[in-house]
Design a protein around this nucleic acid. Sequence first.
DNA 1: ATATTGACCTTTT
DNA 2: AAAAAGGCCAATA
Length: 135
Amino acid sequence: MARSNEAEAFFYAVYSAVQEIPYGKVTSYGHIAKLVGFPERPRQVGVCLKHLPIDPQARHNNYNVPWQRVINSKGVVSPRSQPSGSQIQATALRAEGISVQTGALGELTVDLAEYGWFPRVLPSAVDEDDDMSEQ
DNA sequence: ATATTGACCTTTT
DNA sequence: AAAAAGGCCAATA
């Protein structure tokens, strides 16, 4: 089964990375992509998560994967196809104590400064370099 | 079989 | 400052 060994590895890597997200924290698709070693493929991360809770035995599904903790880089829950889906995700996030604000257009925004989880991947890129613009 | 879409991100106007 | 374009590749049409 599976498509290719490469694709399967990517799926599993993504699921593992998502499982690393602490409870009550969120991260972005792009960061997950970086963690698995493919910073240029954030969209495929979404493809992987889309497969998750739908079919229990369709593909490498894993109910232990907290897909809800993955949002886009703007700190907004991805609207996805149906508006209800984002609401479900927002509800799940609130259940973890994450504050999700609803915009006028139904945009579900999360404060990345508070709930964002972005561990640095690079081994030794910057050490004593003080970042002054952080917020 | 080819063509378009999409739970996105970065770089470039 | 905001908007457009490019890129990526599995899944769907």
